[in-house]
Structures are given as C-alpha cells and as structure tokens.
Simulated scan of single mutants.
Amino acid sequence: MSGLQFAHLIRLSDDTGLHEHADGPLPRREHGYCLDDVARGLVVLNREPGLPADLTALAEDYLAFVSYAQAEDGRFHNRLSPDRRWLDEPGLGDWWGRALWGLGTAAARSTVPAIRRAALECFDRSAHHRPSSVRTMAFAALGATEVLSADPLHASASALLGDITSYIGGPRPDANWPWPENRLFYANAVLPEALIAAGDLLGSDEVRDDGLRLLEWLLTVESRSFHLSPVPTGGWFLGEPRPAFDQQPIEAAAMADACARAYRVTSDPAWLDGVHRSIAWFNGDNDLGSLIHDEQTGGGYDGLTPSGPNINQGAESTLALISTRQHLRTLLRSTA
C-alpha cells in the first residue's frame, strides 16, 4: 500500500499526468497539467525506496508524459490542456531543467530496466542544451548528478554538470551578501546544492566548499529563532522586512534537499539541522505556528500567507511535502 504519504499525489493524478492546481483537496481538472510538476513527481517517486506496484505504474505514467512533452531537438512543452493539447511551444524554461532532473533520477534509480533505458534516452536527447537561466541549469545539473552516480563516465551528464560552476559562480567577497545573485528569488538552495554535487562528483574541493559556504549563509538568512523562515514569493534582499509572505513549500523542500546532500558529502551532522528545520516548517514550527499540510488528505498546503496557510493542496506543494518527508524516513533514520 502507498499509504497517506502519496495518497494526495494519487488523488491529483490520472492516466495522463498530474493536475497542477487544486481547490482545497480536489483537483482542478479544468486547469490541466504542466511538465514542471510531472517532472518533480518523477523525482520523488523514483527516489522512494521499495516503491510499490501502484506507484511504479504512476512513475511510468509520469515518464510517458515527460517523453510526450519532449521535442525532437530536446526542448520541452510545459502546459497541456485538459483535452490534451499543448498550449505552448517547446522551450528551455525551468520545466526543461526539472525534466532533466526527473529523467536523470528515473534513469539512475528506477527498479524497472525499461524505465531506466527510456529515461536515459530522453535525458541524452536534451542534455546538450545550455539555457540562459541559472536555476534552469541547476535543476538540470541535479539530473546529471543522478546519471553520474549510476555511470561516472557518462559524457553528456559530466559535461552538463561541469558547466554549472560558470553559471552560478562562487561566493561574493561581501560577507553580508555572498550570494551570487543580487536578490534571493525561489528554490534558492538548488544553487548551492548544484555546486556541492558538482564539486563532489567532479573532484573539485573548491567548488564543493563554495557551495557549502553559500548554503550555510542561506540557512542562516532563511531562519528566525531557530526555525525556517523562507523568503517570500517576491524574493528578498538585505534590509527588507522579515518575516515576509507568501512563503512557498518549494523553498523548504529545496533547503531540505541541499542540506541532506551536504550531510551525505561531508558526514557533518550539523547539516541535519537544516533538514530538521525544513520538516518542522511543514509541521508548524514556522513564523505563524501553522501546519502547512492536511493531516487527513496527506496534501501540502499551497503556501503560508500573513493570515495563515493557503489551504489549497496543489501539485507543487504536495510534492514539496513528500520530498521533504522522504529525508525524515531515509536520511534521518539512517543516523539513529
């Protein structure tokens, strides 16, 4: 049985893909699907140990969606209407990067050989692109990391991961603002995570340590009184008020992923504090003391507003909840 952990993800899914939006716990089918979310779903399903048959079948559906979204030149469509029509032209936005992340994870971790082969073929078809967005490339770099973990000699994954340092750069010399961008935006921890992964897998201590330094600063900036206080949807810079809203679950999930990787790379238990804070944010240890998930449905709430949680339970927030809790049931359990 898949249990409550994945119950709401199943509720949001059908034989086409994953519905993007929800009204409370109910899928808003009229809004259709987006590759961004399906690719994230491919990540969390394929990194779940001992995936049961029903969720393996769901992972196959998600992979079929990603493959269908891929153009011959390796770009991807993102938005699919409820009547299965693409609403955009293939491109290289964040959805391209997340697609490679999902494909790389499936290629490396699926227990089904056919899924691994198909995912790797799709990954290879797209890995030659170099989009302009730093976050898009960082998401793709995490997919390359997965491929390299299974095949350290994989050429296109190695080339893609090797290029991430030129996109992100190292920390700035300003101790108050070492961040490589002029403002914090969204899913911020993916940038240091990509550097940590690249430095670790490609054998560069300098790149790895740059990522660790940026992540340490980010965790400090995104914490208040020892609980996570993510930056709001509009981003943040020094001197702007905190806490600020709306806070998004994707920020907590990115922090959990990055701190979990930092722990695996360094074996320093101090990094587990960032994982704990991210899990606790969903459980009410946040700026308003509010639960950011529905205990009855297993869905994640869509954000933390000044007046409390946004109780809609869409795909992005539910996947953020699942991915963060995966660390509770795997990484943290292994240290007990």
Rank of each mutant, 00 (worst) to 15 (best):
S2E: 03
L4N: 08
L9R: 05
L18P: 06
A22I: 11
D23F: 13
L26E: 14
R28I: 12
R29M: 10
R29A: 14
G32P: 03
C34V: 11
A39S: 13
G41C: 07
L42P: 01
R47F: 05
P49W: 03
P49N: 08
G50A: 12
L51Q: 06
L55Y: 08
Y62Q: 05
L63V: 11
S67Q: 14
A71W: 00
G74V: 09
R75V: 01
F76H: 05
H77M: 12
N78V: 10
R79S: 08
R84T: 03
R85Q: 15
L87S: 01
L92T: 06
L92F: 09
L92A: 11
G93Y: 08
D94V: 02
W96M: 03
W96F: 11
G97H: 12
T105F: 03
A108G: 13
A119F: 11
E121H: 04
P131H: 07
A141G: 11
S156V: 05
A157I: 03
S158Q: 06
S158G: 12
G170K: 09
E181G: 11
F185R: 10
A187K: 09
I196Y: 01
A197S: 06
A197P: 02
D200I: 01
E206N: 04
D210N: 05
G211A: 08
T220I: 06
L228I: 02
L228E: 07
S229K: 09
T233E: 06
W236D: 07
F245E: 03
I250T: 11
A253T: 02
D257A: 10
Y263W: 14
S267K: 15
P269I: 10
G274S: 02
G274V: 15
A280W: 12
F282Y: 04
N286E: 04
G289S: 15
D294Y: 12
D294S: 15
E295G: 14
S307V: 11
G308Y: 13
P309T: 10
N312K: 09
Q313K: 12
G314H: 01
T318G: 09
A320Q: 08
R325S: 05
R325Q: 10
H327W: 10
T330S: 12
T335I: 10
